[in-house]
Amino acid sequence: MMLIIAGSAYAGSSEDESDNSSTNPVVRFHAWGGSAQVNSYLKWVADRVERKYGITLKHVKLADTSDAVSRVLAEKAAGNLNNGSVDLIWINGENFAAMKKNALLATGWVSDIANFALTNPSNNSAMVTDFGEPTLGMEAPWGKASMVFYYRKAHFDSFNKPVPQTLQALLQFSQQQPGRFTYPVVTDYLGISFIKYAAIALNSSNQSLFYSPVTQNALEKITPSLWTYLDALHPTMWRNGEYMVRQASQLQRLIGNGELSLAFSFTAAEIPSAVERFDLPRGVRTFAMSDGSLANVHFIGLTINSPNQAAAKMVVNFLLSPEAQAKKQRLQVWGDDTVLDTSVLSASQKSMFETQQSHPSALDKSKSTPLYAEPHASWTDALRQAWEERYGARY
């Protein structure tokens, strides 16, 4: 089978097929480098695309994705439109909105990617929408994530209380067991994610407002219920709510040392992984709130000044292959949910996803939960600023 990508033909089915007819092209993939699992997976991808297609994939590890966005913006401002230093970039949300606004991404290229069809985009708007922004073929979906909660089972056994399954039940738990829950400040991505989740869950009759650009009128409709909830929650939190953690990683440490009983994450797979590393105890369990879970799709963008666009598209096509998506979804590898619609896969392709291993601390994916799409990107800064105006002086 021959797949055509941006005018370049390559064989995409056999393990041993390679296109080494020319000097190995180099594709620089700028992606967050703060996860050993992600880094290891991308090393596997690099080995595979070099073997299959003769492409050298370099993972440029980022501490903050905005650093790569700023680099592309500076190159464009300097007139470098054909020989940029970033080929592919792992983005979503605010960073995508910024790159789209400044015309930093190649447009319309995703339809060239043969495996993109396996995401079934015509029946799955999440594949072509990023934080309320139409992607317009500027970025290809790569994986899915959603907010999950995790807890120390032994603690709840001793409390003789059920694990809270709704936002209101979370408040009641924190009131009954003060100091056992907290969330990071809103400058942290997980902190602002909690605020967005709470705002959506508390405004069921106004949820449509979140999926258009924020307005002052919309913000004033949303925030009263949010402030009422947080005003009640904060005094019951860890250290009486007088001190809040600055980074998401601190939540895991506080669960590990027993100061917290309940925490949350946007990466379900990191919980069983942390248990295996002995950073969390064996009795930790993961679940999703029954009243909804904030969820998003993360994407890969192709920069407007990449000198290696044909090879970069070949890499993206491999990343969307059933082989690569099934590998990435394995708990022991990464645990990142696939963006492929398994209903459109062949029997042999589906079988790649049927060998996933379970873990006592992993999220039970057989249980469904409502998913809240990320609000329009403009809501993030608006909610963060409103929170800081109300609570920032305290923290």
Rank of each mutant, 00 (worst) to 15 (best):
S368C: 04
L73K: 15
G137Q: 12
A362L: 08
F353K: 05
L88F: 13
E323Y: 10
L118T: 06
Y53A: 11
Q168R: 05
T187H: 12
Y229A: 06
V245Y: 07
I55F: 11
D19L: 02
F266R: 06
S261R: 09
T380M: 03
N115C: 04
T236A: 15
Q168E: 08
Y197G: 01
G283C: 13
D364Q: 04
A326L: 13
L105S: 13
A63P: 11
S204K: 09
Q329M: 15
A201H: 06
A117I: 05
S249G: 05
G143M: 07
I222C: 04
A218I: 04
W227T: 14
S158M: 13
F266H: 00
A63D: 15
T355M: 02
H298I: 11
S13V: 05
N124D: 01
L345C: 06
S21W: 08
S193W: 01
S321W: 00
P121Q: 04
D47P: 09
L294W: 05
E276V: 02
S366T: 10
L171F: 08
S14K: 07
G191H: 10
F287W: 03
E276G: 02
Q172T: 15
A263H: 04
N240H: 12
T369V: 14
N308Q: 15
S348C: 03
L136M: 11
A377E: 14
A199Y: 01
L73D: 13
N102P: 09
P224W: 10
V128Y: 03
I195K: 00
E133T: 15
D157C: 03
G256S: 09
F194N: 04
G79C: 09
S14C: 02
V49Y: 09
F116H: 01
L170H: 08
N24G: 10
S261Y: 10
N317R: 08
L105V: 14
R246W: 12
H376I: 13
K58T: 14
E15P: 08
D112S: 08
S378E: 12
R28E: 14
Y372R: 02
Y183Q: 02
K61D: 07
K58H: 14
Y10Q: 00
E94G: 07
P134N: 13
Q349W: 01
A326H: 12
V38P: 01
E17I: 12
Y372P: 05
A6K: 09
E15I: 07
L302F: 11
Q252L: 10
L383E: 00
N203W: 00
N24S: 15
V245Q: 08
S343Y: 00
T338C: 03
R28A: 12
K101Y: 12
V26W: 11
T286A: 00
L363K: 04
